[in-house]
């Protein structure tokens, strides 16, 4: 990279080796902004929790970073380059509810999906892939359930299956959408120690989180989000009552009303 300034708009001060850097990103559903002008640089090796009220755009932030939802404006860079050329370095753990767990696949099948990119088109899953998948399953303590159909797992075990699918990819950046939602205490412990292990390997992890009480224990950085970035930084610095009040306290009701009015005006008009 010769001059980072040429690839970005003038005035941006994003570090080129930030695992995830978001610049002036706005995302809207049906013209109603869900994320508005987000600017963010995640430091390398950070363990980031994203918190905020329902509808604050937490999941959308992750999906927009992965190009899963269209951005109205702004851009996202992963380790200084567009996501489309950095896919292998990013592992995504979707919300558990996003798939049908009655689907006829085994735990091992699901974990192998994390390595499909190493196989060409028309090539089936081979022994090398299965071996690596088993190693990832061992890391989350599920190797004995490898050949179970996924519907026969508990919620926590299903979540660990998704984590193993991300682990097997050996990525540097992990984006997790509510990894702690609806899991048992044992799984919660497993996930926490997994997050620590990833951090000790130098990986960066960003996870949407719901339980405010555990934020200081689990995450060293926190992103307080409510359509806008309310605060981002080290947990001990920004996870303050004042910031929480600003995130959850409904200070943005006027903005909310305005965007609802906007959505009302355009409702029914085909795009």
């Amino acid at each position: 990279m010769s001059d980072p300034g040429t690839t970005r708009p003038p005035g941006s001060e994003h570090s080129p080796d930030s695992p995830l850097s978001i610049h002036a990103m706005t995302v809207a559903y049906e013209r109603r902004p869900v994320l508005w002008d987000i600017d963010l640089d995640i430091p390398r090796g950070a363990l980031v929790g994203i918190v905020g009220p329902n509808g604050a755009g937490k999941s959308t932030l992750i999906k927009a970073a992965l190009d899963l939802v269209p951005k109205l404006s702004g851009h996202v860079q992963v380790f200084g380059r567009p996501y489309t050329v950095q896919r292998e370095r990013v592992a995504y753990v979707p919300q558990r509810e996003s798939v049908d767990w009655e689907f006829p696949v085994t735990v091992l099948d699901v974990v192998c999906m994390g390595l499909y990119h190493t196989l060409g088109l028309f090539r089936g899953v081979n022994r090398r892939i299965r071996k690596r998948a088993m190693e990832a399953l061992a890391e989350v303590g599920l190797e004995e359930l490898a050949h179970r159909q996924i519907a026969q797992l508990s919620g926590g075990q299903q979540q660990r299956t998704f984590l193993a699918r991300a682990l097997v990819q050996e990525a540097d950046l992990h984006l997790m959408d509510e990894p702690f939602a609806g899991v048992d205490a044992a799984t919660e412990e497993t996930i926490v120690s997994l997050l620590r292990t990833l951090q000790s390997r130098g990986c960066t992890t960003i996870a949407v989180h719901h339980d405010l009480q555990t934020v200081p224990d689990y995450f060293d950085h926190v992103l307080l989000l409510n359509t806008r970035v309310v605060a981002f930084g080290r947990t001990d610095e920004v996870f303050t009552p004042a910031n929480l009040e600003a995130t959850y306290g409904g200070k943005l009701t006027l903005l909310d009303q305005a965007s609802q009015a906007l959505a009302g005006q355009t409702r029914g008009v085909p795009r």
């Binding site: 896919r87 979707p94 996003s98 999906m113 990119h117 028309f122």
Partner: peptide
């Protein structure tokens, strides 16, 4: 048969598949 693993992934978890570049 040729596109077995891709079709299965798209059926099972389309969002993830798209995120991975499928």
């Amino acid at each position: 048969i040729a596109c077995f693993k891709e079709l299965r992934l798209v059926c099972f978890d389309p969002d993830y598949a798209r995120g991975r570049g499928l």
